[in-house]
Amino acid sequence: MKKVFIADDDSSIVEVIKIVLTEGGFDVVGETHGKNVEESILKEMPDLVLLDVWMSGFDGREITRKLKSNPATKKIPVLLVSALSDTRQIAKDTKADGFLEKPFDIKKLLDTVKEFALK
């Protein structure tokens, strides 16, 4: 079972994504506290990271760069999930693997996660 890590400071987002992905057959780990994100990822070593860009306590861009520059984590696909209108540009700039704009269809969420996690 593929493990997906979700980081978002809004717990309801984490919750609903967890439901969708769990039902979709993924092992889901959620984190709402920004400062724990990096540490948790290193501990969990997921198959895919879904990262909010703009959350209290941390900057999704910064974490993406770190993950991508760390040999241990650089192969883990990172998807930026954000309500920012320029999510696509941020993803490009930070070398994230993909992005998902909020709000999203749950079908699109599942399809995108499948696309990257099952690669």
């Binding site: 609903v16 309500a83 909020k102 709000p103 749950i106």
Partner: peptide
């Protein structure tokens, strides 16, 4: 506007997702 739209979209995201879950 950027913050407002970001903040507005977050609950919309959740509502939309749950609505779609209920539909499913």
């Amino acid at each position: 506007l950027a913050i407002a739209s970001h903040e507005l979209k977050t609950p919309i995201t959740t509502i939309k997702a749950f609505t779609q879950l209920i539909q499913a």
